[in-house]
Amino acid sequence: MIAKFLLVLLFISSNNHCYANQDYQAIVLGKIIKKEVKVVNNTYLTEYKLKTKKWFFKKDAIKKTKFITIKVLGADLPEKGIVIKASTTPDYIPVGKEAIFFLEQNKLRQPNIFTLSKNGVIYNDSSFKLKPSEIEHLYQEIEEL
């Protein structure tokens, strides 16, 4: 079940960018504590500050820290009445509640600055039919990586 889940996760994560190197730099349980929209060279980015609770997996080059930054293309601008979405970014990133984040980086490889792809967040959503016990198994699988 878990293997299948991971397989599907990988397949779907590659949506819209076939041939992509699916290269998770870290998989972290944590809670987003701050959200801020930034405009960088005409492009809207939303910057999230994540308070980490548990590191399930990380590449050697990544250092475990209490807080990390996640930058995601797109922004929700209620004061302007517009919402800017990129096809590769998650539809919804929960703020203030625990979630599992599959963190990626682009080639800039800035230390502890990450991004998320479309399916880069797992939160309390039964869409994968994951029960708490199964999520626990997922953690174990990830830890074995």
Binding site: N41, L73, I82, I84, A86, L116
Partner: peptide, 23 residues
């Protein structure tokens, strides 16, 4: 994009769409 930190490595395309949320 000059600020590519919001895009995962290996993405071959990004479509950015701006929608009106209100009237």
């Amino acid at each position: 994009i000059k600020a590519p930190e919001g895009v995962a490595a290996g993405s071959n395309v990004v479509t950015i769409v701006n929608y009106a949320r209100t009237d």
